[in-house]
Design a binder for these strands. Structure first.
Length: 1052
RNA sequence: GGGCCCGUAGCUUAGCCAGGUUGAGCGCACGGCUGAUAACCGUGAGGUCACGCGUUCAAAUCGCGUCGGGCCCA
């Protein structure tokens, strides 16, 4: 049986019940099992990093994923949905280091790498469990029991296999490169791991002495004085013109060379008082110059280096137009150095301190702290032209926030830049939502793609499976654990460091190969997720059946992150994109569009929203707040609004339940087909609407227009279902017998609710499950055990009647206009009116057969529809036109004016239509012409009007005894109903009621409706009179339109 | 400095792809309804559609530029 539902929508309580139901019944497993063998839908979960806490953005992310997967499952797809966890890398290392107070790698080595790895692993696993619980609360149905974890051996193998494949494809190489380097973590970091913010640094202008020209200098500018010891060249722009000037400062002259356009500004900064142009140099001539290093006698190596000038496009017309080149400390510098076979001089070690090569004075100095020393030395040697401070964007290690430096080190690279064009082809083959995410944003990123530095000099990561022979330099990449174990002749329980470090392999040369001590860049971990999640390479069958992924969805920051890393890893191993479609979603910002951050204190935790409102409400809110690819401005008000909306849905759902229960309604025996003939137009209308909704939502889902779906559903619930259909259907539910009219209403409501609840299931899974449990499972023990096992509803085209929908829309408009007009005329809706007149302006209005609906909703006895342009009879007001009357009547003018005032306006107008009119004053007739009066049309006081889209609606509020009797009856009914409520009576309870009305005329009116009143309030015993002695459990005095009415009621 | 997205009422937003009277919700003011009721409904005030220029009979919508916000890059 269907049950009644007590009380308001309590999301938390409902969700707890559904959660335990799902757990008890293993609903998730059943749902996935049910679709096995269906068309495959391979989803890959972008693995959140195991930080321990989910935030609003990750919640939104999982809600989108879950909604899409539930939708696909309802559409008979077998979905692959392993949840994923990103568990390696510096962030966790740093956390563990912090917990022990470690400062550098030496501390870790002292503590023991094996124990350190163990701590990292425990930390990651604990965080994973915490976050799993948080995701489950949201109703996110992924495979949480068997997630893919980047720390598992099977996952490590997927990374190994991929690297081996890249090696076979000749895309792996070791090389000296300038990399972003964190001197604290002592590791290379990826471009994507660099965080930029403003930092105040030195800004210095340095003079490099030209060889063979006395007192002549080329001027460069830099913000990193510590790189000066590594300078080997100067770059100039081949299109610029350079000037040689004789500059005067404090009576001393020197000859300076710099870009012609920048002379003035540089000399100003250098506080030169005067200068004279000696000549111009072309970029070509500039390249003939040689100079001495300004600190040549302090950095021994610099004495042996020849310093020249080279052309480079990247030189801009800023500062001096001459760029300091240190190939060991800059990316462009490095490339320029390679092109011109310059020495890649890098006198800085992995700890960020100068090495032996930097010379006696600088050795051991931390470079960022050496800036001041270098400046002082330049000053002392007279090579400093100017020195100041400058705030500019500078990169930092994203974990420990240490400013990064660039140093040339030997690293492993994937030669991604070679694949740029092929990657762009692949991107064009992927379907992007929105389209520009791929064609514009991602393509732009790929166009700038550089080789991928995949090695990190750390501990907690996937070890590089690269073994090299120290003797003959032979190198091999191992692809699987089995391969390694076969070669090593022993088992390895865990493929992490340090165990794997101890494995030595035989080299063909007879020597022993050692593992390259690095671990993978953590971005490489998640990059292989699409096949690692299928347990490839050990399970090839699944890979062949599922790969590549049908769908992934992540935030727009993942353009450079996971969208890219996956593409890169897939290109080097499989030569194609690992996904077929990508939905790029936005960021969660606060209600003012600011980033959520601890310092502003505007962070909203998803669980806070769940606790205050519920998971379904959070879900429906984030899905509906805006388009998925736009940033979400979180607003508590909007969440509350969503909550209110779902509450109305809940009320709509539960409103009919008591009657259905009372009548033992059984949809199985009494479905719509039995009542086809008894359906009212409004029933057919709501059925049309719900089927239109199904078709709209299905269409929008194809383009992942999730916000439009939520909007359509909300509109349907509020406008069509709650504000309209339920209002229309209410009186029918009170009919007591087995009237087909009532049963047709039940069947309609039932059909609509069940369809709607399935339609909402992917988005509000808890609420839908609860409603389905009652309405469907409550009636049919054999029904599918969960709404999430039902098929996605299909739109019943035969029920869609667009003309009827349009007519009803018109009826609603007229009805609203009528209530507007009533308000103007001061007539409450409770009081019936005799007539409502619809006066269309242009096009004729046809209500189809919805006349009775309109009458009911407007509480009107009659609806009159005028022809276009026609108006109801207006009051007319005559005003005399003195200018015209005066000249004709002269002395009698005053009498004429009075005659006009006294005349009947309608009569005058009628006469004037035929020519002249006659008006009378003091027994004398006067003839007047049309120009002597102005006739104004006024809506009569008893006919207030309001505008609607196609004209005006007039409401005739004139009262007569019959209408008044009805009005008073409704007033009395409402009060008795109110009192029934106060006594907490059930709908079907009978009462005894006595009503004492102090006014005889009103009593007489009420008596006309005595039977009606008694019926409406279910009073078996009903007395209506004057001076009655009131008894009953509840007696109350009421004021109805200024009359005292005393009512007493009693339950029988 | 470059790429992409966004800017509509006090707030949150729809409409923009496909040009044709800017539409909602919250909040505010007033009124109504009452067996969905710790709910609900109506009316009203409130918009130079960020700004400027262009295309067009017609621009919130298309194009260019400026300003502001977000993400990414340099």
């Amino acid at each position: 049986m269907i049950s009644e539902v007590a009380g308001q929508y309590n999301a938390q309580e409902l969700e707890n019940q559904i959660r335990s139901l799902w757990e008890k019944e293993e609903t998730y497993r059943k749902v996935r099992m049910q679709r096995v063998g269906g068309k495959k839908f391979f989803f890959v979960d972008g693995p959140p990093y195991t930080t321990g806490r989910i935030h609003l953005g990750t919640a939104w992310n999982k809600v989108i994923k879950d909604s899409v997967l539930r939708y696909k499952s309802m559409n008979s797809f077998e979905v692959k949905d392993r949840a994923g966890w990103d568990m390696h890398g510096l962030p966790i290392e740093v956390k563990v280091e912090e917990s022990f107070g470690f400062r550098n790698k030496k501390d870790i080595e002292t503590y023991g790498v094996d124990k350190f790895i163990q701590r990292c692993k425990e930390f990651a696993l604990r965080q994973k469990d915490d976050m799993t619980a948080q995701f489950k609360i949201l109703g996110a149905w992924l495979d949480w029991d068997d997630p893919y974890m980047t720390l598992k051996n099977e996952y490590l193998e997927a990374a190994w296999w991929t690297l081996k494949k890249a090696h076979e494809n000749n895309l792996l190489e070791r090389g000296l490169r300038v990399v972003n380097w964190c001197p604290r973590c002592e590791t290379a970091i990826a471009d994507s791991e660099v965080e930029y913010w403003d930092e105040t640094d030195y800004s210095i202008y340095v003079k490099f002495p030209i060889i063979g020209e006395e007192n002549t200098f080329i001027v460069i500018w830099t913000t990193t004085p510590w790189t000066i010891p590594a300078n080997v060249a100067v770059a100039v722009n081949p299109t610029f013109q350079y000037s040689k000037v004789r500059a005067i400062k404090d009576g001393r002259a020197e000859i300076l060379i710099m870009a012609s356009d920048l002379v003035e500004s540089v000399l100003k900064i250098g506080r030169y008082q005067d200068y004279e142009l000696l000549g111009v140099l072309s970029a070509q001539q500039m390249q003939e110059l040689k100079y001495n290093h300004p600190l040549g006698d302090m950095v021994p190596r610099q004495k042996e280096i020849v310093h020249g000038v080279y052309a480079a496009d990247f030189v801009t017309a800023e500062n001096t137009g001459c760029v300091h080149i240190a190939p060991g400390h800059g990316l462009e510098d490095y490339e320029l150095g390679l092109n011109h076979h310059l020495e890649i001089f890098c006198p800085v070690g992995e700890d960020g301190r100068y090495t032996e090569e930097a010379g006696e004075k600088y050795r051991g100095e931390y470079v960022k702290e050496a800036d001041g020393v270098v400046i002082a030395d330049l000053e002392e040697k007279g090579r400093l032209l100017a020195s100041g401070r400058l705030a500019h964007r500078y990169g930092h290690c994203w974990r420990c926030k240490t400013p990064i430096i660039f140093i040339a080190t030997s690293q492993w690279f994937l030669r991604i830049s070679d694949l740029r064009d092929r990657m762009l082809d692949e991107v064009a083959r992927v379907t992007w939502y929105p389209e520009w995410a791929g064609s514009a944003r991602f393509a732009d990123w790929i166009n700038n793609a550089r080789d991928w530095c995949i090695s990190r000099q750390r501990y907690w990561g996937i070890p590089l499976p690269i073994w090299t022979c120290p003797d003959c330099k032979h190198m091999e990449v191992i692809g699987t654990a089995a391969e390694l174990e076969a070669r090593a002749g022993r088992k390895l329980a865990d493929l992490h460091r340090p165990d794997v470090d101890s494995v030595l392999l035989d080299c063909p040369c007879g020597g022993k190969m050692k593992r390259s001590p690095d671990v993978f860049d953590v971005w490489f971990d998640s990059a292989v997720a699409s096949w690692a999640t299928l347990r490839f390479p050990s399970h090839e069958k699944d890979f062949n059946e599922w790969w590549p992924a049908d769908f992934i969805t992540e935030g727009h920051d993942q353009t450079r992150g996971w969208f890219y890393s996956q593409l890169g890893a897939s290109m080097v191993s499989f030569g194609r994109a690992p996904y077929k479609s990508v939905l790029m979603h936005g960021f969660t910002l606060d209600d003012q569009g600011r980033k959520m951050s601890k310092s502003i204190g505007n962070i909203v935790q998803p669980e806070e929203v769940v606790q205050k409102f519920g998971a379904d409400i959070l879900r429906f809110y984030v899905l509906g707040a805006n388009a998925p690819w736009e940033d979400l401005h979180f607003s508590w008000d909007a969440v509350e609004n969503t909550s209110r909306m779902l509450n109305i849905f809940w009320n709509a759902y539960r409103f009919a339940l008591p009657y259905m229960v009372l009548d033992k309604f059984d949809a199985k025996k009494a479905d719509l087909s039995k009542y086809e003939k008894s359906l009212r137009p409004e029933d057919r209308w709501i059925l049309s609407r719900v089927n239109s909704l199904v078709s709209d939502v299905t269409a929008e889902m194809e383009g992942y227009q999730l916000h439009r779906i939520v909007r359509s559903i909300s509109d349907f619930i509020l406008e069509d279902l709650s504000r309209w259909y339920i209002q229309l259907v209410r009186p029918r539910t009170w009919i007591e017998q087995d009237d087909p009219d009532k049963l047709a209403a039940y069947a309609t409501i039932y059909e609509v609710m069940v369809k709607l609840c399935k339609l909402m299931a992917p988005f509000t899974p808890f609420l839908s499950e609860a409603i389905y449990g009652n309405l469907v499972k409550g009636l049919d023990a054999a029904a599918l055990p969960s709404v999430h096992m039902c098929n996605w509803p299909s739109a019943d085209e035969a029920r869609i009647d667009k003309r009827l929908e349009a007519s009803m829309a018109l009826v609603r408009e007229v009805s609203m206009a009528a209530s507007n007009a009533r308000q103007k005329g001061g007539r409450k809706l409770r009081w019936p009116v005799s007539e409502i007149v619809i006066a269309p302006a242009k096009d004729a209005v046809d209500l189809d057969n919805l006349d009775s609906v309109l009458r009911g909703q407007t509480n009107a006895k009659k609806i009159t529809i005028l022809s276009p342009g026609e108006k109801p009879r207006m009051d007319l007001e005559l005003s005399p036109v003195h200018k015209k009357i005066g000249p004709v009547y002269k002395g009698e003018a005053r009498a004429v004016v009075q005659a006009i005032a006294a005349a009947d306006a309608f009569d005058v107008k009628k006469q004037l239509d035929g020519g002249e009119a006659t008006v009378t004053h003091a027994g004398k007739d006067y003839k007047i012409t049309a120009e002597m009066v102005q006739i104004k049309e006024l809506p009569p006081e008893n006919l207030p009007a309001a505008e609607f889209s196609r004209g005006y609606v007039y409401v005739d509020i004139t009262l007569n005894p019959e209408l008044e009797a009805e009005g008073y009856a409704r007033e009395i009914i409402r009060r008795i109903q109110d009192m029934r409520k106060e006594l907490d009576l059930r709908v079907e309870d009978q009462i005894r009621a006595m009503v004492d009305i102090e006014s005889k005329p009103i009593l007489d009116l009420a008596l006309l409706k005595k039977e009606h009143i008694a019926g409406e309030v279910r009073a078996k015993d009903f007395q209506l009179g004057l001076g009655l002695k009131l008894t009953g459990r509840l007696v109350k005095d009421w004021d109805i339109e200024g009359i005292c009415v005393r009512i007493g009621i009693d339950q029988i």
